[in-house]
Amino acid sequence: MLEARLEQADLLKKVVDAIKDLVQDCNFDCNDSGVALQAMDNSHVALVSMMLKAESFSPYRCDRNVALGVNLTSLTKVLRAAQNEDILTLKAEDAPDVLNLVFENTDSDRLSEYDLKLMDIDQEHLGIPDTEYAATISLPSVEFRRICVDLMALSESVSIETSKDGIKFSCAGDIGNGAVTLRPNTNVEKPDQNVEIELTEPVALTFSLKYLVNFCKAAGLSKTVKLCLSNEVPLLVEYALAGSSYLRFYLAPKIGD
């Protein structure tokens, strides 16, 4: 059986909220190392890869590998019943029809129990190659969100160019052009505000802003976001979670002229 207890329901609520507009039905693959999810959006442009490591739960028990096929809209309805600070426990049998969710509020001695019906989801798993990215940029997640939202007002695409001097987001639209350049910046007192750039070669790629704005729904999960780019490969947008867990988004670049 599976039994996984999260100190705060907040984490799962935010993860599901961040991905539910991108993917609808997906398997939560549970094994002894944790709970993983990999799913493409309907148009096969973006890929979500989530890993909640066993260490992020306390306790965590998973006797047999189990795939929990979940409709995220339905899961959202159930998670709405959990307060952010509630202790959340996920439970499932070895061949489950339902996922049992328990929310506990120790202050008010309230215990809520929900059973979510599971579905059989035949999901293709993609092999994500280990990539040595040419550019890795770490920046505040709210800054990245602001840039994407601002540029989307002008255009549907953004060009991202990185050099050792900085990272430049630029777009061209019907009403005009826009560009935001961030230079490397270290703030000892506020390390969350740092912009760090590691570069082995310059990169220039174009991406759909609609997807990037969608990824930015995860900004509440982490104060910083990491962008990993190499020419002619998908962009990796990573939100690191506590206990080496993560929420990653991959986005295929726009190609051709």
Partner: peptide, 14 residues
Amino acid sequence: KKGQGSIMSFFGKK
């Protein structure tokens, strides 16, 4: 004009 690539053309099926 650039066209949108598919994630499947970069990451093969397992």
